[in-house]
């Protein structure tokens, strides 16, 4: 039976989950800016003997807090390189949909708009449909201001996640598409596991050297020399 460790530090929550012999153990804590401090203790608690018996390590690859994504990616690099394990990158937006499925908020065939707060007035989002109990991406992941959000298709959607704090700023057309809103749902290591297991079975893994966060927002709001004013 497959044994997979999952790590998610993409939001203010820090979570690790272990699938082994068909059972799942989860450790989760709301821990803004304390992920690095907590993660190792959680790993030790879940795997007192180290990562030796694992088949793979899954990590929430993004989008999310840049520092958080790097903590999960660096941890996955360390474990996968040291224990010679494959890595399974899982979208945090997809993991959040999986969370909604587990909580009974999104059923089979349901369309789900998964969002995260990207701060500076923007949200990360992607659209999914639940197929065979798993989220299938209908759109690519993107970052935009709420008023610029255009939800693909015409179906009613269940909207999830921290990006929904901008609901009031979305267009009337977007708001009219949302049939239910659950803004407290979060991505978590536990909900990474089903997606990771499917990816592992499909052979969709990467080597430790290839592990890297998916930031979605790649431009840096930092002025280049030519844009900076005179020196003082």
């Amino acid at each position: 039976m497959t044994s997979i460790l999952a790590i998610d530090t993409s939001t203010d929550a820090c979570s690790v989950a272990l699938l082994t012999a068909g059972t799942v153990r989860v450790l989760q804590e709301y821990a803004p800016r304390r992920h690095n401090q907590l993660l190792l203790g959680m790993l030790r608690e879940l795997l007192p003997g180290g990562p030796g018996g694992l088949d793979a390590v899954a990590y929430g690859c993004g989008p999310g807090s840049f520092t958080g994504l790097r903590i999960a990616a660096s941890a996955a690099q360390g474990i996968c390189f040291a224990a010679q394990l494959p890595a399974l990158p899982v979208s945090t937006l997809a993991a959040q949909v999986q969370s909604a499925i587990r909580l009974g908020l999104a059923g089979e065939g349901c369309w789900v708009l998964s969002t995260l707060d990207a701060h500076i007035g923007e949200l990360y989002w992607a659209l999914y449909q639940v197929v065979d109990g798993l989220p299938h991406a209908v759109s690519s992941e993107a970052a935009c201001r709420p008023e610029a959000l255009v939800i693909p298709g015409a179906e009613q959607v269940v909207a999830l996640g921290g990006g929904m704090r901008y609901h009031a700023d979305m267009t009337g057309a977007s708001q009219a598409r949302i049939s239910a809103l659950h803004d407290t749902v979060l991505p978590s290591a536990e909900d990474i596991l089903p997606l990771a297991e499917a990816a592992f079975t499909a052979g969709a893994w990467q080597q430790a050297e290839a592990i890297c966060p998916v930031y979605v927002r790649d431009e840096i709001r930092w002025k280049k020399l030519a844009e900076q004013g005179p020196q003082s």
Binding site: N36, P51, T67, R70, I71, S74, Q77
Partner: peptide, 20 residues
């Protein structure tokens, strides 16, 4: 830089843990 330190710290700690 806190974000930069986190990268090396997390990689080092997980390598060390994995190698006991």
């Amino acid at each position: 830089l806190v974000g930069a330190l986190m990268v090396g710290a997390t990689l080092a700690q997980t390598l060390a843990w994995s190698w006991s």
